[in-house]
Design a protein around this nucleic acid. Structure first.
Length: 382
RNA sequence: GGGAAGAUUCCCGAGCGGCUAAAGGGAGCAGACUGUAAAUCUGCCGUCUUCGACUUCGGUGGUUCGAAUCCACCUCUUCCCA
């Protein structure tokens, strides 16, 4: 019996299995550029490139969908250029699904350069200081020009520690903007994902998830988490939200990418994750491996002629030693960025692949236990 | 043979009587990184277990309350003239 939720001809989500013990979901999201098996990790390619990794390599390591960014592409090269190029897929030579973030996060992370009002955000470019305005309408237009499969609503993300009153205003503003995003978007080839906000305040989060769900058509996102709060706080928020999501849609936890956050997220009903972490730490000389984090740059790998991760099937792990990788990192060679990025992305993709298998076998709890023992060298709480 | 400049902590290089264990780079070592203003950023970097103590600025000997800094000689380096 198909339980798929048809939203339009181009998008639908099937839940093909639910883990008996945790309720974690194994699903498939259908998009115009192909299917996405969930739970999934999505590599981030902010400026229309996953830094230092070829699209062909991303396919080899089985990346199913990648992110790109509205704010950054709007500034450079300009969303009109991308549109003239035939859209983002063509421009960057990636024919699988793409998700574009709206720039809401940049409004947050480039905080010093902007001014927010109900109408939108006036901000100065971090590149040349020039003044620009983002409104829900303009962001939807930019995302239309870029042409990603999934487009994020324009939201306001608040920092951990933001006071209640301010968080409430931001959450309510995000809802108002959401309504305008939907009103200004007329394109069945793109799926708009609304974003839940509300900082760490339970009533705000619940209000946000309820109202946001009204708009969700085939996917909903959880924003404003993993912004510096303790892990337990984030887990608590995810627990809180879980009863309120639209049932048969994928849930996307934005900006999350450590292995434990991903596993804990899946156990709390999340289906999609993205994070710059694997590529950023790669460029800074660190790898995630099945035996835990490895700072390849460290001196103790100088004469370590073993592979980075014997359980990994990526190009880096099949062909190079830690001593060589350390040498590349140490001499500031570009190849270090590439090889470690390939590995780290593959590691998280493989993690989500294993999670999917575990769900299929009603085995997620046992998988989690074994993974933690190996990765963190300890048993975690239940 | 004659003249000139110089020798500083792993390297380069500032300092030119006390505020100097000695600027700044580099190298080295470690840490951070979570919807990418990040191939970035932070810390350590003479020795000792910390406050602190001790040993350092080519060598030796002086001047001085006090010297990496001033003087003498020695050693070595570089440059110019024969």
């Amino acid at each position: 019996m198909c339980n798929c939720q048809k939203t339009n001809e181009n998008f639908s989500y099937d839940i093909i299995k639910t883990d008996k013990h945790t309720g974690a979901r194994r699903g498939v999201l259908h998009t115009p550029h192909g299917d996405i098996q969930t739970p999934i990790f999505m590599p981030v390619g902010t400026a229309a490139t996953v830094k230092s990794v070829l699209p062909s390599t991303l396919k080899e390591i089985e990346a199913q969908i990648i992110l790109s960014n509205t704010y950054h592409l709007y500034l450079r090269p300009g969303s009109d250029i991308v549109e003239k190029a035939g859209g983002l897929h063509k421009f960057m030579n990636w024919d699988r699904p793409i998700l574009t973030d709206s720039g809401g996060f940049q409004v947050f992370s480039l905080g010093a350069l902007r001014k927010i009002s109900d109408d939108g955000v006036i901000f100065n470019s971090h590149i040349d200081g020039s003044r620009h305005i983002f409104t829900p309408e303009s962001v939807m237009e930019i995302e239309r020009q870029l042409g990603a499969d999934i487009v994020m609503a324009f939201d306001e993300c608040t920092a951990f520690g933001t006071e209640y009153a301010e968080s409430k205003i931001a959450m309510e503003r995000t809802l108002k903007w959401l309504k305008r995003c939907f009103e200004s978007k007329h394109n069945d080839k793109q799926m708009l994902f609304p974003i839940i906000q509300g900082n760490m305040y339970e009533d705000l989060r619940i209000e946000s998830v309820k109202a946001t769900s009204e708009f969700a058509q085939c996917g909903i996102a959880i924003g404003g988490l993993s912004v510096g709060e303790p892990a337990e706080v984030m887990y608590k928020m995810l627990d809180l939200l879980q009863p309120f999501y639209p049932e048969k849609m994928p849930r996307y936890l934005m900006g999350v990418g450590t292995p434990d956050y991903i596993i804990e997220g899946v156990m709390r009903g999340v289906d999609m994750f993205d994070c710059v972490l694997p590529t950023r730490i790669a460029r800074n000389g660190t790898a995630m491996t099945s035996n835990g984090s490895v700072t390849v740059r460290n001196a103790n790998y100088k004469e370590d002629f073993t592979t980075l991760d014997s359980e990994c099937d990526c190009y880096c792990c099949k062909n190079f030693t830690k001593a060589y990788l350390r040498h590349l990192v140490n001499t500031n060679e570009i190849l270090a960025c590439t090889l470690l990025s390939i590995h780290n992305i593959r590691f998280l993709l493989k993690l989500t692949e294993n999670i999917r298998k575990a769900i299929e076998n009603d085995n997620l709890l046992e998988f989690r236990k074994q993974f933690y023992e190996k990765y963190y060298g300890k048993l975690l709480q239940n």
